[in-house]
């Protein structure tokens, strides 16, 4: 784990973040997500939920105008290029890289500090953790929807992010699976003391997350 911050600084803080498209202000908020907790941002489609995540991750399209501070682990993010922000993303699609095997997907995500044989061992251990030991060589396209969602979660976890941004990650799963995945994701975040920002239009997501809810 990164030793660059004291535990109390490992929160995700947004201060006076405003995002506007032309003259329309989509987002205007300040909030702090404590480590190990989930803050839910809710709003109808087109309200700028995903845009907020794009701003935090560093992918805001140039058409938008944004201002405000985003601090993670005590570091100001907005000045950093996306690949140095260390925010893990989960979308409603698993988005496993189709040209890599399942194991390849996990190894791709591992931090560079993990070297040599350790990479493979870590990736295989991660697969075992989600009950997919033996699936390492599989083509991601052959997995079931639930398996893909689990691999996507494990992939982002092994990359050792400092925060998780979830963009409607459960909306494409069927009802049974949705409950399981929610539990899995929130438990993993708690266990790793990650601050989690969840955007959704589903009130049951927010309820399951158990943290503060912000309406856009």
């Amino acid at each position: 784990m990164s030793g660059r911050a004291r535990p109390d600084e490992r929160s995700l803080r947004l201060e006076a973040v405003t995002i506007a498209l032309k003259d329309r202000v989509l987002v205007d908020l300040s909030l702090t997500v404590e480590p190990g907790t989930v803050t839910t941002v809710m709003g109808p489609s087109g309200s700028g939920k995903s845009t907020l995540l794009a701003y935090i991750a560093g992918f805001l399209p140039p058409a938008f105008a944004a201002a405000g501070t985003v601090a993670l682990d005590g570091t100001e993010l907005t000045a950093l290029p996306p690949h140095r922000r260390r925010v893990g993303l989960l979308f409603q699609d698993a988005l496993l890289f189709p040209h890599l095997s399942v194991l390849g997907n996990l190894m791709f995500a591992l931090p560079q500090a993990v070297r040599g044989r350790e990479r493979r061992a870590r990736a295989e251990a991660a697969l075992a953790e989600i009950n997919l030991a033996g699936y390492g060589g599989a083509d991601p396209a052959t997995l079931s929807g639930g398996q893909r969602a689990r691999v996507a979660l494990m992939r982002v976890l092994v990359s050792e992010p400092c925060a998780l941004l979830l963009d409607e990650p459960f909306s494409k799963l069927d009802a049974d699976l949705r409950g399981q995945m929610r539990e899995l994701v929130f438990a993993a975040a708690r266990e790793r003391h990650l601050p989690v920002l969840l955007v959704t239009h589903d009130a049951t997501d927010a309820k399951a997350a158990g943290g503060p809810v912000v309406l856009l």
Binding site: A54, P82, R86, L95, F108, V156
Partner: peptide, 21 residues
């Protein structure tokens, strides 16, 4: 689908690595 690139950047991959890999 640029979300693939965003995910990879979240893993700490540079733009060059995202392009090539």
């Amino acid at each position: 689908d640029n979300r693939y690139a965003e995910i990879a950047a979240g893993f700490g991959k540079t733009p060059a690595a995202v392009f090539w890999r």
